[in-house]
């Protein structure tokens, strides 16, 4: 019995666009243990959300999985039928998104959202459903849940709606929660409370969380492990405190140096010249070489680096190491 809840092995994903084939994900491999937080970090367009959708098999028609395996509880997700996936989504694996107002149906009351989610996966009578709905709303710290059961999403604030989304994700006791930038649209003080809430629940339920974010400081607050992505590839991964305190890859380093902080010394922020490459004809070799200050000509632009094993599970893909 392995401790690994989720294992992604060598995933390669393309989108077949009218403009060409977009190589969205390349050689993506990482695993997530039970009762653990993994942060998938990177800037926009790096492929982190797409990875999440691949796990849930919610990709558009144009998507083509060229290679790779995704094992969830030791079963191959990529081999499952749509019907089998429907049993998994919302029950074994749940997801929360960035914009709660887009995730909720504006024509349905909060209570209706919750009962629908419960009944999609369990045979349960009306009375019991209502009790469970009230219970889950209390768990996400919505005071006076009876009042909110009958409200519509537009009557709640952003923070409260996000709590409702969290309630929907947790009501069927999933083993894996995928959280895609779920605090980005919230005020910083609300963000803190919501994060603490999910942390508590994660500990209580011994759930695993795949936390997608572009905010490295936030990732530091809650993640055990971190995977840094750039242009569809993994550039570095390892224990969060190790990677964030001793980053090995030039991209991770540059990213950390571009984040303003509130400490006493205010250093000049480092920006990364250039833009993210077009993934229709992605750069050969290491995809970061077009923007890397330390690029070695004829090596970085021709060969994809082999993995460098730094200590304690810390890995990076860079010719300089």
């Amino acid at each position: 019995m392995t401790n690994k809840l989720l294992e992604i092995e060598n995933l390669k994903l393309n989108f077949n666009d009218y403009m060409g084939t977009v190589e969205v994900l390349d050689k993506i491999s990482f695993s997530l243990n039970k009762n653990s937080w993994l942060g998938l970090v990177g800037e926009s367009g790096c492929g982190k959300s797409v990875t999440a959708f691949t796990i849930l098999r919610l990709l558009p028609e144009s998507a083509e999985i060229k290679n790779g395996d995704i094992l969830f509880k030791e079963a191959n997700i990529l081999a499952k039928t749509e019907k089998e996936m429907q049993k998994i989504r919302g029950k074994e694996i749940s997801m929360i998104f960035q914009e709660p107002q887009s995730a909720l149906d504006p024509s349905m009351r909060i209570g209706a959202h919750i009962t629908e989610t419960i009944r999609a996966h369990r045979k349960i009578n009306r009375k019991e459903v209502k009790l469970q709905a009230l219970d889950i709303l209390e768990k996400v710290e919505i005071s006076n849940p009876r009042y909110y059961l009958n409200r519509y999403p537009h009557e709640l604030s952003g923070g409260m709606n996000q709590r409702v989304c969290i309630a929907l994700a947790l009501v069927n006791d999933p083993s894996l929660l995928i959280a895609d930038e779920f605090t980005t649209s919230l005020d910083v003080t609300i963000q803190k409370r919501i994060l603490e809430l999910v942390l508590e629940i994660q500990k209580l339920n011994k759930m695993s969380v795949l936390f997608i974010t572009h905010d490295l400081a936030l990732a530091h607050e809650c993640c055990d492990y971190i995977v840094v992505m750039y242009a569809g590839q993994i550039v570095e991964k390892g224990r969060a405190d190790k990677v964030l305190s001793s980053p090995a890859h030039p991209y991770t380093k540059a990213l950390l140096n571009s984040i303003p902080g509130i400490s006493k010394d205010v250093k000049r922020l480092q920006s990364i010249d250039g833009v993210v490459p077009n993934l229709i004809k992605p750069p050969a070799g290491c995809r970061f070489h077009t923007r890397c200050k330390h690029k070695i000509p004829n090596i970085c632009d021709k060969l994809f680096p082999k993995v460098r094993h730094l200590d304690d599970g810390h890995q990076a893909w860079c010719h300089l190491l």
């Binding site: 803190k192 603490e196 400081a217 530091h220 607050e221 400490s263």
Partner: peptide
């Protein structure tokens, strides 16, 4: 309150559940 809510790299309360903002 704003300053305390800013995520930063020096947070000692990481994952200990000790950060419990009053409800």
């Amino acid at each position: 309150h704003l300053l305390e809510s800013v995520p930063n790299f020096k947070s000692i309360n990481k994952k200990s559940g000790k950060i419990k903002s009053k409800e």
